[in-house]
Every structure is written in C-alpha cells, then in structure tokens.
Amino acid sequence: MKTLNLYLVRHGQTYYNIFNKLQGWSNSPLTQKGIDGAKDIGQRLSKVPFAGAFCSDTGRAISTAEIILDANQVSQTNKPHSAPYFREEFYGYFEGTDINQAWYQAAGPHGLKSIGDIVEKYSFDTAKDFLKEADPFSMAEDHTEYWQRVDQGFELINSDPSLHDGDNVLVISHGNTLLSLMDRYANGRYDLSERPANGSLTRIKLVDGKIEVVDYNK
C-alpha cells in the first residue's frame, strides 16, 4: 500500500478573479495580491519536504507553484510538473464571460438562477452538464469528460516512480476543481457554498490511488 499526502493549493488571485470572469482553460496573470498570497502560503509550507510538485499548464498555476517552491527550505523539488490533466473545468463558449451571467444561462432552462441553485438542488456534476447544454458550441466539459481528464492527473501522481509511501506532494489547483473534489469525496463534511480562497490549502491523501479528504480551505 502506498499513501501520498497531497497539498492542494488554489492558485493566487488573478485579474479575471477580480473581474468575476470564468477562467477555466483561459488564463489571466496573477495580481500583486495574488503574488503576495502565493508567497504567504509558500511561507506556511516552507518546512514541508515535497517529493514532487504538479500543476496545470496555465500560467497562473505555474507561477503559483514556482513561488511556493522558491520559498521552500527543505525540498529538492524546485520545478513543477505541469500537465493539462490538472486544468480547471473547461467552460467552452463561456470562457472569459461574467460568472453570474454564464451560470444564469445554464440554470435558467431548469427553472433556476445560479450555480448555487444548481448545486443545492443537484450537484457540481449536474452544473457541468447544464453548462454544456447551454453552450452553443457544446464544447464545455460535462461531468464525464471532466472527471476522465482530472482522474488522469491523479493517476499520473500515483504512478510516478519517484514518489514513495508517505511522500508529500504539492499540487496547484483551481476553485471549481477543489469544490468538485469536495463534492465528490468529502461526504458532505463541508459547506461548499463557501468557495476556496485564492492561496488556500486543501489536503487529501492518495491511498493506492484512491482519494481521502483530510481538510479543506485552510
């Protein structure tokens, strides 16, 4: 049995976060507040020996990972392994649009008004499916497409031959990805109406590739 301790950090604040725009596979740079927030979590984790580091191939995730690793005093890992498996949900046509307007268009045909309404009545997986239905190009990820991709990311970590039982692994993640993970694996332990903060820490364990939630949004 191999257990890996994953430290999931939401990337630092970006300009799209300020402008309330959806940024899944699209990207905007870290703000100064985002850089400072990444430095803060870097200091919090500076004494954690990371055997590996992973992130999506978006600039905001790579920048956050590099800042955290630069602050680490006990790890030999100094560069993250970036891969598309770790990207945020793909919002298709709605990439870069106002968050409230996009989710209103997804929720409206079902008699609802927001992603909060969808999640309260159904789930985050259903929200993905509704957004794909509303996408005129049908390019947004539904929940099946999303999890097929994200699960490959966790398999990449679990199968990494350089990682051994008990190792700590840094993973830079994204807001809706963290919410989706909690929705799927935390068994209702957390109030998911509260979004994870930029620069926040969520911890999970990979036990022979299976996810166990330790804590959320610290």
Rank of each mutant, 00 (worst) to 15 (best):
V119E: 02
S75H: 04
S56Q: 05
S123M: 08
E120Q: 10
L131D: 02
S114K: 03
A106F: 09
S173W: 03
Q73G: 12
A186I: 12
S180R: 09
H81F: 15
Y16L: 07
W147F: 10
H81K: 14
G42M: 13
L192M: 08
N27K: 08
M1R: 09
D70Q: 13
V9D: 03
N27C: 07
C55H: 01
P136C: 15
R87S: 09
W147L: 06
D151W: 10
L4I: 02
L30K: 01
T177K: 13
V207G: 01
Y104R: 11
G34H: 02
N176M: 09
P196N: 13
G12N: 06
E66F: 11
I68S: 03
S63M: 13
R195C: 04
Y15F: 14
Y7R: 06
N5V: 07
Q148C: 03
F19T: 03
G37S: 11
E95W: 06
L181F: 14
E88N: 14
N20A: 14
I41W: 10
A140R: 06
F90C: 12
I99K: 14
K113D: 12
I172W: 04
D151P: 06
N100V: 08
L22T: 01
D125R: 07
T126G: 00
V171P: 00
L156G: 06
P80S: 12
R149F: 13
E120C: 12
T144D: 05
G111E: 05
L179E: 08
V213N: 04
I68T: 03
K205P: 02
F94T: 01
